[in-house]
């Protein structure tokens, strides 16, 4: 029997219908067949899924474990020797000024990127939710930056932000404002990369919000309109509460994305991380930048992994249950 898909108790098997052996014989035969099928299935399963599983083990799971080992070493990348230093890499990341700076930058970047793209995304989704011709094309255009190369996008915005010849400087000059010292001042750099990240990301939020908005029953909104609830009242009393699952979903995915997806923009716009050392950028800079501190970099990577693990676990355990689903 190769019909492995149907559960054994759902219907009497074909062979059982043809003859009528005793219960015990039947049970034994079924058990034998299952064991034979099982080992045959394992072979097939490994043939189909084995290569992928092997690759995932070798290039995702093995690195997780070897990172934990590297993180206990004082080891320069390229050096054949390394000294075990216990937990001191972790202690350094959580207590040294440069380590704390990474946390500060990551927190500001994440907050700015998440709030910026979600608020703008929601506004755009509310507009696109109107039944007007051309909105599908507009939706496509708004989403498009999300699929573009971060390196290319960063180059485009470098030109726009250039304090002397950039388009933004020209626009600000028209209002009599001097361009901030982008690229030189660490704080402005952080603002700059947040703006670029939000530009690239808001279409994603808009499209997911739009799907959420379209799942709100029209009759609820019509009933509220008949009860003379204004647009603002309708938004806060009906739309937003029904949108909470979408909001939480986006909140979690955006936090994770902004912590892991921004590398290209950061590396191209601020090559050595002047004020923009978020946690992922720091992992790269420490190991492959000028310091070659591989052990320290591995420790930060381990911390990042557990941070993401906790965020995901919280989402699965808590948010999915407590949030209002219609």
């Amino acid at each position: 029997m190769t019909t492995v898909e149907s559960p054994p108790d759902s219907a009497p098997s074909e062979s059982a219908q043809r003859s009528t052996p005793t219960e015990a014989e039947l049970a034994a035969a079924r058990k034998r067949a299952r064991r034979r099928a099982s080992s045959k299935n394992w072979a097939l399963f490994l043939l189909f899924a084995g290569p992928n599983i092997l690759l995932i083990l070798a290039f995702i799971y093995y690195p997780l474990i070897s990172n934990m080992y590297y993180s206990t070493l004082d080891w320069r990348l390229g050096s054949p020797t390394a000294d075990p230093v216990g937990m001191s890499n972790y202690i350094r990341f959580f207590t040294s000024p440069s380590g704390l700076e990474v946390w500060r930058v990551t927190a500001i970047f994440t907050a700015g990127a998440v709030i910026g793209s979600m608020v703008l995304g929601l506004l755009i989704a509310l507009v696109l939710n109107k039944k007007i011709p051309g909105r599908t094309a507009a939706r496509t255009a708004v989403f498009s930056p999300y699929v573009l190369s971060g390196v290319g996008v960063a180059l485009v915005w470098m030109f726009i932000f250039d304090p002397q010849r950039g388009a933004l400087a020209h626009i600000l000059a028209a209002f009599g404002i001097d361009s901030p010292a982008w690229f030189l001042d660490g704080d402005w750099n952080l603002v700059m990369v947040i703006i670029v990240y939000v530009w690239k990301n808001l279409g994603y939020c808009a499209v997911v919000f739009l799907a959420g908005l379209q799942s709100i029953p029209k009759d609820l909104l019509e009933a509220a309109t008949i009860d003379r609830a204004g647009a603002v009242r309708r938004f806060f009393s009906i739309v937003l509460p029904l949108l909470t699952p979408t909001v939480f979903f986006l909140l979690v995915t955006n936090i994770i994305f902004s912590m892991t997806n921004a590398f290209d923009i950061l590396r191209v716009m601020t090559p050595s991380g002047n004020g923009t050392n978020t946690i992922i950028f720091e992992i790269y800079l420490q190991a492959f930048g000028q310091y070659n501190r591989a052990g320290y970099s591995a420790a930060i990577a381990v911390v990042l992994f557990f941070t993401l693990f906790i965020i995901t676990a919280v989402q699965l355990r808590f948010v999915e249950r407590k949030v209002h689903y219609q």
Partner: peptide, 14 residues
């Protein structure tokens, strides 16, 4: 869930 930045260094060694 594992971002490429996390596995970057060990994969580089491999």
């Amino acid at each position: 869930m594992v971002p490429p930045e996390v596995s970057m260094l060990p994969n580089f060694m491999t």
